[in-house]
Design a protein around this nucleic acid. Structure first.
Lengths: 147, 147
DNA sequence: CAGATCACTTGAGTCATTCAAGTTTTTTAC
DNA sequence: GTAAAAAACTTGAATGACTCAAGTGATCTG
């Protein structure tokens, strides 16, 4: 791997670091809009895309403590966004699933997050196509990691 | 602006959202390495690039409360990374500046953050060049916003 | 069937942050 | 020129989102 390529990668990375602020801002903005904190947003996203999940699995997906998932579940349940169901096969585990309201909230969040920021729209269609292809080539969706 | 282009932008944006997890991870990883929390990292970055700054200005740059900057300054000062100086023109304001140790910590953080993650290095040099150019075209450095 | 283990809950404690109130200094207005 | 208002920082109380340790009930192992 050439020196030049590493430099290029570093420059690319630096540019991405700047752009990340836009992603983060958009995320917390959407959360604020729906009165959801980042943890709740992520939980909703995971349950919305993965479907019903044992609490332990959600903790793993969220890279957080099990007791934190209890806390998140309490809050989301209080707002009618999720339901706890004792798993029939193992009565220790409780499965979380989105209610209709939860699904609606997830859709809403998804809609808010989908709209690209102004700088992106300043690019031409061919440029966007190139950028999209490179980005997806690089960060292929790896199912099972909602990170 | 065509429908197709908006769709393209949305897809690009979605891909970027995934990629940005890598940026975030790299950031907190670097902070962990230096025993600095995200706030301290950002403060160091702002002071390192903008130079000495009144505490109020830092609060603005960090989008946080003034008292939080007091707290950050206390911690960074205790570790010998910053110094408070009463401004000669207005004795209410205290200016924060990096010490040599603080500058070193900033350099160290910068070094850690500069190294691109594996997925980026999987691209070819021409691809990286294209990606870099598109990203920088899109998110031009706008000095004065350390966000 | 006893003991170990597992999945979730509860409670205590932490860390980064905000808000309200306080001090010192500067600006504004009479 | 002085009194009131405002600004910049600090302090203290309170909050939110977490972690860790301990608890409870269910399931697996020997």
């Amino acid at each position: 791997m050439s020196i030049r390529k590493v430099e290029l990668a570093e420059e690319t990375w630096a540019a991405m670091t700047l752009a990340m602020n836009a992603v983060r801002d958009s995320f917390v903005e959407a959360g604020r809009n729906l009165d959801l904190n980042p943890g709740e947003m992520k939980a909703l996203a995971v349950l919305g895309t993965e479907g019903a999940l044992p609490m332990g699995a959600l903790a793993k997906a969220l890279h957080c403590d099990a007791s934190n998932v209890t806390w998140l579940a309490d809050r989301l349940e209080a707002r009618g966004f999720v339901e706890r169901h004792t798993a029939p096969t193992d009565r220790r585990v409780k499965t979380l699933s989105l209610t209709d309201a939860g699904r609606a909230a997830h859709e809403h969040a998804h809609d808010l997050l989908r709209v690209p920021p102004a700088p992106l729209l300043a690019l031409s269609a061919p440029e966007l196509r190139t950028l999209r292809d490179l980005m997806t080539k690089c960060w292929e969706q790896t199912p099972g990691d909602g990170g």
